[in-house]
Design a binder for these strands. Structure first.
Lengths: 333, 333
DNA sequence: TTGTAGGCGTTATCAG
DNA sequence: CTGATAACGCCTACAA
């Protein structure tokens, strides 16, 4: 591999001059510039990003932490991040945290040890304080969580309004008895979605009953167990909202196993509009989660903060209804 | 950030000694070692991976090229790669090629410009020759394609036998009239799957009819259009095999739209056992594609080749039937 | 076993 | 505008 010295020698100039033309400095004689470019061509010279990093203490690399990678949600987020970052010649290093605090912290340290210029995190296990502490070590973008102290760095969905829209939609279709399968009580997004649900009920004058609530952990099986538990109780409901699509899919399987017709016997709405949403049957009415845009913005925030660019940022994202076939208008009885 | 010099100073030794203990050399006085370790602690010293890379011309980074990231298949592959590599303290840089030759080549150059120690590729558009040429520039692992010249570096599924198993299963269930929706004719994996299908037919003495074949491009919509086209023809079939799960899901939607009962009126088998396979209804009988294992092996191959490790490798993977609910035994007529 | 000195390939600072 | 020269932080002969 050719070095900048050899280019300099071949072009008959000093290495400083070569460095200048490589970095697009304007202050260089066009004649020399041409010579240098010719030499670069001939030697097929490629600057060493490592040496460059050592000299200017920038790696042009961004670390990204996600819970898992095999789920389409994170895949889309990663893709958004990779595309917007590579367009600016930055590269992304991935690491997965497996929903476990120790592993997440470990992953973060790993990323930092790699001298990333910044981090983009979709953390499940770290506390808000952990994130604040992290921010003092290097610039970060945070996806799907709002931390007061890190306002500028957070990019999230309006979960409360999403939860509101979901049950609001059901109410508008004439449903009054609406059960809810929630995410875990210690997750802010889960609780916000639930809060939205309650607000919609209240607004419609429908009392919220703890009986019609089941708390899961966002997994398919929780949808199954949740519906089973709900059905076993002495309550009636014509509609069910699940705090994410995986649980909704589980609930659908379960409903069918219990002999229910979908959506005739039970209307279901999900949340996130993940890829499976339109592969289940009936196709799932759900709430959008523009993770792609959020990933893009998180990346742009880094671009602004670390590399002095000037992108327009949006921090809060609307969760909109995606209407498909899993909700039936209830006949007014 | 503390440097190795400061550690040396604080410990009262030379920086070579510090370097030695950091790199676990045995040839160092336990007393000094202890001093150094203490100093490292106190200063919270972290070696600069950049400086290290410059000095020993290794970045400990592996570039991974995939077609897309938002699809669960690649997510799983990435996760496998990340986990096995990070366990050995290597990091992975991702880049996506978008199924486009120019973009793939661009991505590869980008990765190389980042001084990756090696590349792992799941290329859709590059030619075998491109890959061979690449191999001469730096070590590579190739997933899902067999290139004769790169035998050692390839990790793939036995697509032919997978295709065989799929229609063989149908035949065993009593089906005789079996339609097939294939992947694109210019993709080796698609053609191998189709070849397996034909072999199974032949073995059972069932003539293959081009009429019952539709060529798609592995997309959901191809499943829809494919079944529609097949149904419009003057042929009968009680079963359909789709060369991947996405097309199978599309075919299911289509079948239902056409008023068919599943699986009573039409048995369907997919391929890949991607996440949607057990979310569709009826749950899809399909052929496994152990992409996780393949990703892991591709990573281990790099570990062996570049970092002198000694992992056991497996290059060819069996495609096994995953039995679910989308196939009905045909009544012998 | 330990320390000294040179090199890895750039960028940045300063004279000229 | 151009060219020495000194960082950048670490590794590794080689010498002591």
């Amino acid at each position: 591999m050719a070095t900048i010295y050899q280019v300099a020698e071949r072009a008959g100039v000093s290495l400083s001059t070569v460095s200048r033309v490589l970095n697009g400095r304007k202050t260089v004689n066009p004649l020399l510039r041409e010579k240098v470019e010719k030499a670069v061509q001939e030697l097929n010279y490629r600057p060493s990003s490592v040496a460059r990093s050592l000299a200017n203490s920038r790696t042009d690399s961004i670390g990204v932490l996600v819970a898992e990678l095999h789920t389409p949600f994170f895949g889309e987020m990663m893709q958004a991040i990779e595309m917007t970052l590579r367009a600016q010649d930055k590269h992304v290093i991935i690491s997965v945290g497996h929903n476990d605090l120790a592993k997440e912290l470990d992953a973060v340290e790993f990323l930092i040890s790699r001298n990333c210029d910044a981090l983009i995190l979709h953390s499940e296990a770290m506390s808000d304080q952990d994130l604040v502490a992290l921010q003092s070590r290097l610039p970060v973008s945070i996806i799907n969580r709002h931390v007061k102290e890190l306002d500028e760095a957070c990019f999230c969905l309006d979960n409360e309004s999403g939860g509101y829209s979901a049950t609001r939609h059901l109410i508008e279709q004439g449903h009054k008895d609406i059960a809810y399968i929630s995410g875990p009580g210690n997750k802010a997004d889960a609780m916000l979605r639930l809060a939205g649900h309650k607000r919609a009920l209240q607004e419609a004058g429908i009392p919220f009953s703890p009986e019609s609530l089941y708390e899961g952990r966002f997994k398919e099986e929780d949808g199954i167990n949740g519906l089973k538990a709900l059905l076993a109780k002495d309550i009636k409901f014509s509609a069910l909202v699940c705090a994410n699509d995986w649980m909704a899919s589980g609930a659908m399987s379960c409903a069918r196993d219990m002999g229910l017709q979908l959506p005739e016997d039970l209307s279901i709405v999900g949340f996130d509009d993940v890829v499976i949403a339109h592969h289940v049957y009936p196709k799932l009415t759900t709430v959008s989660n523009p993770i792609y845009e959020m990933g893009e913005m998180a990346a742009k925030h880094i671009l602004n903060k670390v590399y002095g660019q000037k992108h327009q940022l949006q921090h809060l994202y609307d969760a909109e209804m995606v209407l498909r076939d899993s909700v039936l208008s209830a006949s007014p009885d």
